[in-house]
Simulated scan of single mutants.
Amino acid sequence: MTTQSIALRHIFDEKVYGKRLDAALSQQFSDYSRSRIQEWIQNGFVKVNGEVITSNKYKMAGFEDIEINAEIEVAGEWKPEAIDLDIVYEDDALLVINKPAGLVVHPGAGNQDGTMVNALLHHCPELANLPRAGIIHRIDKETTGLLVVAKTIAAHTNLVEQLQNRAFTREYDAVVNRVMVSGGTIDKPIGRHPTKRTSMAVVPDGKRAITHYRVVEKFLDHTHLKLRLETGRTHQIRVHMAYLKFPLVGDPLYSGRYRVPTRITPILRETLDSFKRQALHASLLGLNHPESGEYIEWRAPLPQDMSSLLEQLRENRDTFEAEE
């Protein structure tokens, strides 16, 4: 097994009072699973105020200084594969990738090959020495757009810290069902759906999730939005928009039963019927370069399927407005 040393530290505030140690740590260090953090605690890798604590049930009092010094398994036995990558930027410290729809980011059950990790290991074999092959954040399989990959341990540590401190700029384009009057902010906690194991939901005991959104263009029964993430929870935009009753076009998990608009051309109806993924694209990514400290932004144009969808929505709007 290939391992890599990892060091994490955080001083908590009073809000963790009464929480279990493993729960507080998994919420703060969300890049690591709760089961991994529990294992670290049990193995004596976690210090609370300088004292090793080996019980996951340890109750937090607030203002604890937590140190974690552990070993983590790195890229594992995943095989390099010659899969094309749309590389937007690359230097000695990082890569920025424009991910297509349908590409799984990280291997998992049922997806051991054909993933972005397999492609990255072919492009840059040294990523095998980094946690998750250097991938800092994920986007869903059917979501397109930008994500960053670290190429060194130092860059990985820096970028993970930026992500945890909400220093990344992440902007998305989305097309949602129904007409949204204006933009706003949704601040609602997200956690595992109480009955649907593959879904997330707004739940009282979830992790805090903040999404800012603004209207770009309105159509007869749809809206083009720009959204910025302040946090990065699983399915965050999809869950928040569904919670507001403006689910993403084509979302297989959260769009609910599709309601056919009354004013719709045959070609738009065909376009909507054939749009089988969530209409979501990570169009802008900004961060401080881990070596120079310079703030850099990258943009990725809309993929063809979303561009075509917007064109059909405009034509549909113009057709019916001309008749009025």
Rank of each mutant, 00 (worst) to 15 (best):
H123C: 07
G145N: 01
G114M: 03
A23L: 09
A133D: 09
E315H: 09
I264C: 06
P247D: 01
S5K: 14
S199C: 14
S308C: 10
W78D: 08
V148P: 08
V105T: 11
Q162A: 13
F45K: 14
K19Y: 11
N111E: 03
G256V: 00
V249F: 05
N158R: 14
S182Y: 12
M1S: 12
K226G: 04
G232F: 01
R263D: 13
K59Y: 02
V105I: 09
I210G: 03
I83V: 11
K19C: 00
I87P: 09
I41T: 01
S182L: 10
E14D: 12
E291H: 15
Q27H: 04
K207W: 14
E90T: 01
T195K: 13
V74L: 00
E294I: 15
C124L: 02
Y295C: 00
N158E: 15
I66F: 02
Q38S: 08
R314H: 15
T169E: 07
T211Q: 03
E323C: 05
Y172S: 03
D91E: 09
T3A: 11
G50S: 11
A75D: 10
K188C: 10
H212G: 04
V175F: 07
G184E: 12
M116F: 12
I37H: 02
R192Y: 07
S182P: 05
E51I: 11
N43E: 15
L21G: 08
I210F: 03
E64M: 10
R233V: 04
L163E: 04
Y17D: 13
K79S: 14
H212D: 07
A109Q: 09
E77N: 15
K47I: 09
R20C: 05
P301Q: 13
K218R: 15
V203P: 02
F45N: 13
Q312A: 12
G183A: 13
G232W: 02
T271F: 10
Y243W: 13
E39Q: 12
H212I: 05
P303S: 03
A154H: 08
M116R: 10
A23M: 10
A101L: 04
P204L: 08
D273H: 10
I135E: 01
V176F: 03
E323A: 14
P107C: 03
A24V: 03
I68Y: 12
A150G: 06
A282F: 01
K79D: 12
E171N: 06
M1K: 08
G44N: 10
P301K: 13
L225E: 04
G108P: 06
